[in-house]
Amino acid sequence: MGRFHRHDDGTVHAHEHHDHDHIHEHQHEEERAELIGDHSGYATGRERIEVLEDIYAENDRFAAANRAALDAAGVRAVNLMSSPGSGKTTLLQRTLAALEGRVRVGIVEGDIETPLDAERLDGFGAQISLLNTGNGFGGECHLDAPMVARALRGLDLADLDLVIIENVGNLVCPAEFEVGEHRKAMVFSLPEGEDKPLKYPVMFRSVEVVVVNKVDLAPYLEFDMGLFRRNLEAVNPGVTVFELSARTGEGVGAWVEWVAGGI
């Protein structure tokens, strides 16, 4: 089966590699494999073909097209990410209630199998496009740009000011895929623990806003907000934080103003 070799521990396996500061400096050409047989009057060998294709390029092309479609309609888009159970949908219910009649909102709902979240968001006057995450760039662990492109076709962008893309609950994969949003935010909740920014630095670093939800549970948890803030600063210095409770509504106003900002 295949092989892999790391360069972060000083060891090199399988091949003689040169300096790896830039992947474009690979010099494999001299490594052509030797002839592997000449048994029937012909010979086969191997040839290395340089490709240099960014595997994310296709996703990023779709993301750019999504953003262009949103821009053409004058719509701002926020990609909202979190772990499962952080309270994203409850926060969206609060957000839609606060913005109803003021900002025309569309929701791209990245639920994996069920319409449960979409049903919870019904009744606030928002357009909702439920995503089929079964095919596209990826499976069910994140939204990618081709999936969001299909979901956007389910919204009448000309009749919207803001699109909130509710990503699949997951702190790893969604951080990897641009979907055409203008801004990224995430919801973190107290029961997840202070160490999460250090364990999922790519996610916590990718956003400009971190909502700290479930602050009403603080009396029941040994959550050290100072430690969490220090951990967050270590991976994303200067990030904006909104401490709130989507359940009680405490502190939700500042978040709502941010999400409606620029419209």
Partner: peptide, 8 residues
């Protein structure tokens, strides 16, 4: 995340 080369 780059496909750098293939051996054929």
């Amino acid at each position: 995340f780059t496909l750098t080369a293939i051996d054929i």
